[in-house]
Computed example of a mutant assay.
Amino acid sequence: MGKDENAETPKHSTDPENAALLLDVMLGKLAVYLRMCGYDAVYALDRGIEADDRLLVLADEGGRRLLTRDVQLAQRTSDGVLLESRDVTDQLRELEEAGFELSLNDQPVRCGRCNGPVERVGGDEKVPEYAPNPSERAVFRCTRCGQHFWKGSHWDAVEEALASL
């Protein structure tokens, strides 16, 4: 979207291992889903950015593909993706139709909160009270924000949503 017929083929990948995305302020929930699918998905409000011009600069400087619900903003990018739906499941369906790979990895690779890389916590490491015992269940920690998480009901709900696409 936002590109003419004579423009080059988009330079950005739809493969989570190779894609760098920027999501505008209307796509915060989608950012979490994409991070859980392994995408490097920066959410504009996490960077304190709302202005269209600043979003375009961030996307360009970071080599990120812009995902937006804003028609005019999408038209200002060479390979931005315009999402029409407000519902996150429908947004995921639109991305899948656009060729994005949407599935959960066996192990999380990105933090749903901040987009940082995650690592598995050792079985003898201390974890916050809210987390399960890592010797009994795989627990992961974000190397950037320190958030601990595991495959629980939220993981199952995202997996179910992806399976329904």
Results as ranks from 00 to 15, higher is better:
A20Q: 14
H148D: 08
A138S: 14
E101K: 14
L45H: 09
G123M: 00
G152I: 10
E136H: 12
E101R: 14
D4P: 10
Q75C: 05
R113T: 11
R54I: 09
S153Y: 07
G48A: 08
R47S: 12
A98P: 04
M1L: 05
R47G: 02
D124E: 14
E5I: 12
E129A: 13
L92V: 00
L73T: 12
L66I: 01
V121L: 02
L73G: 05
N18K: 13
K11V: 11
E97N: 11
V32D: 06
W150D: 13
V118A: 04
R144M: 02
L34Q: 12
L21H: 04
V88W: 11
L27D: 05
W155E: 04
L56K: 13
A44F: 00
V139K: 02
C142P: 10
E84N: 13
A51E: 14
V139E: 04
L165R: 07
V109Y: 02
R86D: 15
R86E: 14
I49M: 08
E119N: 10
G2K: 12
V118F: 03
A163V: 02
M1G: 08
L66S: 04
L66C: 03
G48I: 09
A20W: 12
R35G: 01
K151E: 15
A41H: 03
A131N: 08
A51F: 01
A19M: 13
L67D: 08
G80F: 00
V25R: 13
E119A: 10
I49R: 03
D53P: 02
D46Q: 09
S103N: 12
R144F: 00
E84Y: 12
A98N: 09
L92Q: 04
T143R: 15
E50V: 09
D124F: 04
V57P: 02
A20Y: 12
D70F: 00
L104A: 13
M1C: 06
V71S: 03
C37Q: 07
D124H: 06
L165Q: 07
E61V: 04
L55W: 08
E96W: 05
Q75F: 00
R35M: 01
V109G: 11
N115L: 06
F149E: 07
A74V: 03
D52H: 14
L162E: 14
T143H: 07
P117R: 03
L83D: 09
W155K: 01
P117K: 03
R137K: 14
M26W: 06
L23C: 06
L104D: 14
G62E: 06
D46A: 06
W150S: 13
E8I: 05
P117W: 00
Y43H: 12
G152V: 08
M26A: 09
